[in-house]
Write a protein that binds this DNA or RNA. Structure first.
Lengths: 194, 194
DNA sequence: ATACCTACATACGTGGCGTATGTAATCGAG
DNA sequence: CTCGATTACATACGCCACGTATGTAGGTAT
């Protein structure tokens, strides 16, 4: 297994995903020319169409990669907190912070939904929502939060977080808005507690 | 005032906005050909570029119209409720319901942010957020809700609502998901109450 | 060893956006 | 009332970018 042949293929795939991710993150999906960013990666569109079918296919692959990274980061955050509730709050804060990163914001929250439809239909629940959902499940089992459907709560928090992030990122004074947003967000989370 | 000349101009503008709104709402911004939908309106792209500068300009005009309609609907809902709290809850429910309408969902929540950037920077706070904010202001003045920054709360609710709507709209069983979503949403709102 | 297939590159057609230009109707000045 | 200027569009053109069809070299299987 893992012959040199398949390794080369995996490398080209990775190159294309990386190139697309850079281009999509910087100038956006619509403005990114496939000839340009494949050329920068030392390839052509031929490779892209072979591996991903079309431009949307590459975007999907990029999204999968980013979602996996976000999920891992979220899991690390919640795992390294002293209490589960604290872990959950940290997780939410981390989610907002990630949504402030230009690449994630652009690809995950702007172009992704516009091109591929809502996040819900990308696959059976993306990882970053599943991570929030899982944390809520444990809190519920511990009796720390009120009786609420955890997936619904996860999606509510997901929606609220991403909007907070967009609000902050596009504000004239991001620091000021950030304080207001995080404070309000924490207040909302407290409402879930018993 | 209101000479026949200016009336004609207003009519062409209205025609273009209506045509664009239809096309954007049905097949999406990117897939909508300007030649097609201007032709259906009995005009050409020349008129569009004259009045709106470019394709994005038309989208902005469409968004302004939709936002105004949504604001009016929200204000009516909150005004016709027995109590202010009830008015606010109804308003939130109405917001989710509006977000379920395909045209609003597509233009306002998907293509709009992707093409023009986050809703926050379209203008100084769009009307539908201002409406929620206003309702919260009055509730706060009445001492019905906890101490929270009202604009932040309005944006939290706005974000949560739109995500709920997208979740519902794209679910396999919208009715089932709708019940879960609305129930969870109400629970979250109750957390704002004193 | 040879025939096939995979993984790309190259070449081409098409469609759609933006712009530059044309034109008819209207408005304002004298 | 007349004539120049401006407005409100339509027409024509160029360019870019996507997708597809085709070509090809290297690896794979038997």
């Amino acid at each position: 297994m893992a012959r040199p042949r398949t390794e080369m293929i995996a490398k080209t795939r990775a190159k294309l995903i990386a190139a697309g991710r850079h281009a999509f993150g910087r100038i956006g999906y619509a403005e990114a020319s496939m000839d340009d960013f494949t050329g920068e990666a030392g390839l052509t569109r031929g490779a892209l169409y072979h591996h991903f079918g079309d431009k949307k296919g590459l975007l999907q692959a990029v999204l999968l990669e980013i979602d996996a990274e976000m999920t891992e980061r979220l899991n690390k955050v919640s795992a390294s907190a002293p209490t589960r509730w604290q872990g959950f709050v940290d997780e939410c804060a981390a989610y907002i912070e990630m949504a402030l990163e230009p690449e994630i914001q652009r690809i995950m929250f702007r172009d992704g939904p516009a091109v591929l439809g809502d996040i819900s239909q990308w696959q059976n629940t993306p990882g970053c929502i599943a991570a929030l959902s899982h944390s809520l499940d444990r809190l519920k089992a511990d009796g720390e939060i009120i009786d609420i459907d955890t997936e619904t709560a996860a999606r509510l928090i997901n929606g609220a977080s991403s909007h907070m992030a967009l609000w902050i990122a596009n504000a004239e004074k991001p620091e000021t808005v950030s304080k207001r947003a995080v404070a309000g967000f924490r207040t909302m989370l407290e409402g879930l507690r018993k």
